[in-house]
Amino acid sequence: MNGRRRIGASAVLLACGLSLPAAASEVCARLPEAKDVLSGGGYELSYRTEPEAIRLNAPFALLLAVCGPEGPFAGRIDIDADMPAHRHGMNYQPTFDQLGGGRYRAAILALHMRGDWRFRFTLHGADGPVRLDAPFRP
């Protein structure tokens, strides 16, 4: 019955497809109490999970803060999670809310197996996609 949880009535922004760098003067802050901070391609991505402790098979969300060279990132982000050693990903498609200021919230993630997972974030910026991976063990 734990699958019968509601998800937020969020707009799915995966398809927006454009990189819209914010004004250079805009302050871009790393996420407080981030679980991990990833860097690459001129971007810094910090994230944490909600709730902090993830239970197997239970839905959770990811809160992201993404800073680019010119300030808060405002473009499209793809997110997935997989188990490289087992060659499989998640059984559910996450949905996204863009919160502004480089913040994003990805909901409806659920990890159905114990072991080593990897979050895969693809940032679609003006210079092409940049992938940042974060190893994760629930």
């Binding site: 839905p59 059984n91 409806i108």
Partner: peptide, 23 residues
Amino acid sequence: KASGPHSDAPGPMLTDQARLQHK
């Protein structure tokens, strides 16, 4: 189904997000 017309708590559900995969 849980999000369907006969549900007593209709609305978007995790199960509606299930991926159809070749595997």
